[in-house]
């Protein structure tokens, strides 16, 4: 079971709520995915309004809501959005996104760290979206982030886990959960992230723009579960670095001829 900031999640698939053809399809896709955590863009919803088109179709008792600061260009804007979100929703959860470049939407590491430091002190449960930089992951962890969310590839590109080697280092080193976010374009990408040992993945575009978003949500649920099971079963045993041949009973190689 995945635990973030004391809350447990059976499902390791988190969903974004953007780009769906309708609120109704979004609702069905979320149900088909089995997710327990959905992220919503603060700029997109009116958290305090129960009649908001997104909010009204989602049962807040069933899902942990993770408001995100998508659109914020610097720490100051992100912090302001976060405070407003908490005031409106009463929830401390926050997916911190600081993306100054509207073209690539790549996260700004300096502003993200600065905002994390402030928001953690204010009691937020901060899950920062970040580039797959292992040292940044540790710095964010040290600043009190509840999880880190490195990108697989730029958001919305569906290119998969292009940052694989960096994410592997993050997974090896981090003490907080690692949620691979952004760029996951196919269930196989999600499965790969889970096989690598990621604690969860966050998917949006690949589901919302699929021909059949509901079916695709189900496919992702299976892929995440399969990847996690494979990881636990002992993946990653294939390597070119060494092969043990059959034991040479008692005979020492030239290297060990010195042993008494």
């Amino acid at each position: 079971m995945l635990t973030i900031a004391g809350t447990s999640f059976r499902s390791r698939l988190f969903l974004g709520t953007g780009k769906f053809p309708s609120a109704g399809i979004m609702k069905k896709a979320i149900e088909a995915s089995g997710t327990q955590m959905v992220t919503v863009a603060l700029r997109r919803v009116d958290l305090g309004n129960p009649e908001d088109d997104i909010m009204r179709v989602l049962d807040r008792k069933q899902y942990t809501f993770l408001p995100n600061t998508s659109g914020a260009r610097n720490a100051e804007e992100a912090i302001r959005l976060a405070r407003l979100a908490r005031a409106a929703s009463g929830s401390c959860w926050l997916k911190l996104e600081v993306t100054p470049d509207p073209r690539t939407l790549l996260p700004d590491p300096i502003e993200t760290l600065a905002a994390t430091e402030v928001l953690v002190k204010e009691g937020f449960i901060v899950l920062p979206y970040m580039n797959a930089d292992p040292i940044l992951a540790l710095r964010l962890q040290d600043a009190g982030a509840a999880a880190v969310m490195p990108l697989g590839s730029p958001i919305g590109t569906n290119q998969g886990i292009l940052t694989r080697f960096q994410i592997e280092i993050i997974i090896e080193q981090a003490c907080v959960p690692v949620v691979v976010d952004a760029g996951i374009g196919a269930p196989s990408h999600a499965a790969l992230a889970m096989e690598m040992g990621a604690d969860a993945v966050l998917v949006n575009t690949a589901i919302s723009i699929a021909g059949d978003p509901v079916a695709m949500a189900g496919a992702f649920a299976k892929a995440v579960e399969a990847g996690r099971t494979a990881y636990r079963a002992g993946m990653g045993r294939v390597s070119a670095t060494a092969k043990a041949s059959s034991p040479e009973s008692g005979r020492l190689s030239d290297d060990l001829g010195f042993l008494a």
């Binding site: 090896e172 990653g236 045993r237 294939v238 390597s239 670095t241 060494a242 092969k243 043990a244 041949s245 034991p247 040479e248 009973s249 008692g250 005979r251 020492l252 190689s253 290297d255 060990l256």
Partner: peptide
Amino acid sequence: AFAAKRCSLNDLSALLSPAADPFLPQ
């Protein structure tokens, strides 16, 4: 354990076990 990409604590247990004694050259 020899073939593992990254040696886990379980792999270390295998490498230190009596079963690994004949593998000292490897």
